[in-house]
Design a protein around this nucleic acid. Structure first.
Length: 571
RNA sequence: GCGCCCAUAGUUCAACGGAUAGAACGACCGCCUUCUAAGCGGUAGGUCGCAGGUUCGAUUCCUGCUGGGCGCGCCA
């Protein structure tokens, strides 16, 4: 079952379906591997099999029977494939018009559907370390992508503001505090010191657990201190999210679910799911070697318990179509168990919950972790990236005012980092390398931004972007390099949809690299031949090319927006 | 020990079961009288970890193996 996201794909599928006695939606329409084969291809394997015929014969018959349509000019059989050639002028019109109106992607796909995305979700009182950038940028990219497709997105920051680690911090404060000023760095240092001391001292660990128990029991001193730590942390996190352009729709930490704990445990007991094991309350799950723990022998609740409450809250409030948890792969077991537990509790929506795992961000080939103290701060990496980029911007734009240089350096530096984290498949581990991450050459965020800036530059020189196609003769787009761009634009909707379905922002990253490359190839032709430039002498040709440039610019801007990357007009 | 994930060019990565496996970086050769060279073209570079299986067709799906990563009740 395939849905076709452009009228051309739809027309190609219909053309084959009409002669094959098969539904158009069952046919896959793809781009042929080489331009000389055609613009759209449909393989006849399934049809041939059903008819017990040779696929090549089927393709030949279908191609022979083809009647041109408004968008499709011709069809030829090549082996088992029917390859269609598009009517270029009609295709340009649809593509450019759609792109200019921001309607190239099917913006109605998610109408009436809600997607919850839990991402970022750091622990309070700890640094936002560089390795947090992966989940934060992936989650944000998914949120932006789903929004572009018309879904209602609830971006959730499920702050890690509860649990034993926070008891440890209180214990550390009681021992070594108070520290002034109270900021995340000071709290983080206190926590690291405590973990180091506790490593050889079980009594200290017990002290931490006791403090969490006090916190959970509502001890006023513990609560007041905890609240202060939380406020300080959130202010710090927000300043970093601002750099990334992220705003959350719901900031609701684990602590918010504290009042639900007794009810959750009662419900589980009521279902006869809860059993006792070594003093703890657990639930045995089918197919799992180890049970899921919901209550410690000290009587405190656990991550899993609060996750159950949060999942129920989200369902009750949002009735999501999908509820995504963008969390590192190391927690795969936890989520598998959590979702099984939700299912056993009778929640039919448990199947809508998905763990969206991502690989590690390693530093010098080592796993980075706050409790180990070997962290690089996200904020510091941003600053370094910005600084590295600023020189290049200033050098290449001598007339640009200093404020603007600083602003663009920020956009490009951050864009480089974000892209570097999004471009590989989620599953892959990333070894952090600032030189590579901030590289301005080759496949990178800045390459995309640069391509966009070139489009904007042309439009500036031409006196403005094209905003509608009235009076423009798109038949003037006669060069194959221009058509190559159109073919690529045709793939944008499918790429975005696939990216959303698989929760893989890298699909969009690679699509945009290809689009930018097609544009750059075309652009460079103008270096050798002034007649091939957008701003050529012939007014009609110039306007048609300008329209194409505007479509590319809009698509790059929209695509970068889905990735959470800024698209400056100059750089 | 058990479970999950990964393995493609020297390196970093693509390839929705289909047509001649593609980019980038690095190397080498070219293109600034350029609409921004942060760019473009070209050359060199691959037994798609190994062995089976399913299929008309497998880098893609299944099984086993090897190598690496991560995880496995009172952290999150």
């Amino acid at each position: 079952m395939a849905t076709h996201h452009t009228p051309l794909h739809h027309a190609a599928a219909e053309a084959v379906a009409a002669h094959a006695g098969i539904a158009a939606t069952d046919l896959k329409v793809e781009a042929p591997p080489r331009a000389e084969l055609g613009d759209l291809a449909v393989g006849c394997f399934a049809i041939a099999k059903a008819r017990k015929q040779n696929p090549a014969e089927v393709a030949g018959a279908i191609a022979a029977a083809f009647q041109p349509t408004r968008l499709l000019a011709s069809a030829t059989a090549a082996g088992p494939f029917v390859n269609f050639r598009a009517d270029r002028t009609a295709t340009y019109r649809w593509l450019i018009d759609s792109a200019l109106r921001g309607r190239l992607v099917p913006g109605e796909l998610g109408t009436g559907k809600t997607i919850c995305i839990d991402y970022g979700s750091p622990n309070i009182s700890k640094h936002l370390a560089y390795h947090h950038v992966r989940g934060t940028t992936v989650g944000h990219a998914l949120a932006q992508t789903f929004r572009a497709l018309g879904y209602r997105v609830v971006g959730i920051n499920f702050l890690g503001d509860w649990g034993t680690t926070h008891g440890m911090l209180l214990a550390a404060w009681a021992r070594w505090g108070p520290v002034e000023p109270v900021d995340v760095s000071a709290l983080n240092a206190l926590y690291v010191r405590f973990r180091a001391a506790a490593a050889g001292d079980p009594a200290l660990e017990q002290e931490g657990r006791a403090w969490f128990k006090r916190l959970e029991d509502g001890d006023p001193e513990a609560r007041a201190l905890w609240q202060r730590f939380r406020d300080v942390s959130w202010a710090e996190f927000q300043s970093v999210y601002e750099i990334l352009g992220i705003t959350y729709d719901e900031v609701r930490g684990e602590a918010a679910y504290e009042p639900d704990m007794p009810r959750i445990l009662e419900t589980l007991a009521g279902h006869g799911l809860l059993t006792e094991s070594q003093g703890a309350q657990v639930v045995e799950l089918p197919g799992e070697k180890t049970p899921i723990l919901l209550r410690t022998r000290d009587g405190t609740t656990l991550y899993a318990t609060r996750d159950v409450a949060a999942a129920e809250y989200r369902w009750a409030n949002y009735h999501f179509t999908r509820s995504l948890y963008v969390v590192d792969r190391g927690q795969a077991l936890h989520f598998r168990q959590l979702f099984k537990l939700l299912g056993r509790m009778g929640h039919e929506w448990a199947g809508r919950c998905e763990h969206v795992p991502y690989g590690l961000v390693k530093i010098d080939n080592q796993k980075s972790a706050t409790r180990l103290g070997n962290v690089v701060l996200m904020r510091d990496v941003f600053t370094i990236a910005e600084t590295m980029v600023r020189e290049v911007i200033a050098e290449n734009n001598p007339e640009m005012p200093p404020d603007q240089v600083a602003e663009v350096a920020r956009q490009v530096g951050i864009g480089a980092i974000v892209f570097a984290n999004l471009a590989p498949q989620r599953d892959k581990d990333i070894d952090f390398d600032i030189e590579h991450a901030v590289s301005l050459e080759g496949d990178s965020g800045p390459y995309l931004q640069y391509s966009h800036a070139r489009c904007a530059s042309i439009a500036r020189k031409a006196g403005g972007r094209v905003t509608d196609l009235d009076g423009i003769d798109l038949g003037k787009l006669a060069h194959d390099a221009e058509w190559a761009i159109a073919r690529r634009l045709l793939e944008f909707p499918e790429s975005v949809v696939r990216s959303s379905e698989s929760c893989e922002p890298h699909v969009i990253c690679h699509y945009l690299l290809q689009l930018a490359a097609e544009f750059s190839r075309w652009y460079t032709l103008g270096n050798g031949d002034a007649a091939l430039r957008v701003l050529c002498d012939d007014a009609a040709t110039r306007r048609a090319r300008l329209a194409l440039v505007s479509a590319v610019q809009a698509t790059l801007r929209d695509g970068l927006g889905m990735l959470g990357i800024a698209a400056p007009d100059q750089m």
